[in-house]
Every structure is written in C-alpha cells, then in structure tokens.
Amino acid sequence: METIVCDASPLISLAETGLLNILPKLNAKFVIPKGVEVEIVHKPLKVNQFQLNALRLNKAILDGSITTIDDNKVKQNAQDILDEANSLFQPRMHILHRGEAECLALLEQTNSRTLLVDERTTRLLVEDPHALGEFIQRRTHSKAQLNENKAESISKRFSKINVIRSCELAAFAYRKGMFKDLGNGQLLHACLYALKYSGCAITNKEIKQYLELLS
C-alpha cells in the first residue's frame, strides 16, 4: 500500500467539498506531520466559521483515514529544508512555510515518493525549481533572482518525489464509481470545479483535459 504524505491544502479542499469520505476507500495510507494537524484541526476549531470542517478532519484522523506522525527528526529535517528552499532567491524570500517543509521532511523520513499538495509553490518547488524560479522572477519583475546552484541542489534532493492533487484523487474515485450514489451526469465536472474553487491549483484547461480523458 502506497504511503501518501498530505499537505494541509488538499485535505481542506476535500473537507470543504464533502469529498473527504473517499480517503478510506482508496488503497493508500494518508499521513500528515503534526504541524499540518495543527493547521487543519486545532486552529480552525477556534473559529466559528470553520469549526465544522475542523471536526470533519478531526474525525478522519480519529477513524484512521488520516494518520498523524509526530517525529522530532521530521521537525529537525524540516528546518534544513526550510533553510534550503528559502535561500533559493536573492533577496532571501520565505517562499516555503514550516508546515510544507515538514511534509517534505516526512517524505524523506518515511521513504515515501508521493506528496499530496494542492497549492502551487510547493508543487513547483518539488517538480521543477527552475520553473518556479522563472515564475517568481517574472512576477517580481526580476527583483528576486534565482540562485541556480540552490535550484540544482533542490532539484536533485526531491527528484524521486511525485506530486498529486486532490483533483487526481477525485478523478480516480470517479473513474472507480465511488460517487455512483450522486448519479453520473456532470459529476466529474462538478467535483473538479468544486475543488478548484476550494483552492486546488488546477487550471480550466486541465479540467477540460480531465473531462476528455475520463468522461
């Protein structure tokens, strides 16, 4: 069974869209570092507007659909990843946060190869730090300059990691008929757009490609 390390972003997207219940039906173990549990459960539990989602996510942790790993080595390694990623540009930009760095450290710690993340920057950092460099240089009008050596080192460090998003899980679940109770008509279209509007970094073009591929 594949171990999939999850960032906060896809779990929030799945909770927001009522799709969290696909996780126990999938043949994978979904794990999170302690820092992500804090962000998706403990903090939103204190905010009226987000309590319900926090409770849904907490239930997924309690029933074992998501497993939290609290490991000091992960925290130490996360600091190293944070230092490396956040010196990718001159001037030094804090592009990565501790929670995302903990996910990457947990991948290394558990020898996993799959990262579930919906937000764009971590995905690009893992898949193609040079493309992230070009993107940020373009967005900041070249005020941030990429350190090519760092980009190369990050590229090597994460070369075995594959990134998937909540929309990939939803597409697979759809293909396997896990949403049959909702009818089949526009279901894939509805799921993918719901995830997009909940923050998943998927483009309209990619949704169109999914509909062509799987409908």
């Binding site: 929030i12 997207s13 804090h94 946060h97 995302e100 900041t140 923050g199």
Partner: peptide, 24 residues
C-alpha cells in the same frame, strides 16, 4: 507573487480556510 499559500498566510495573518476559497 510566489510565496507558498502557508507562507502568504503567515505573512499576513489571514484565516487559512478563507484564503483557500478566495484563491480558488
């Protein structure tokens, strides 16, 4: 501009769930 969502949230102090919906 290029920060990760969590970094952007930490910088501004915004509510995580609200930012996800807004970005979406």
């Amino acid at each position: 501009l290029g920060l990760s969502l969590s970094s952007a949230i930490e910088l501004t102090g915004a509510e995580r769930f609200k930012v996800y919906s807004y970005v979406g």
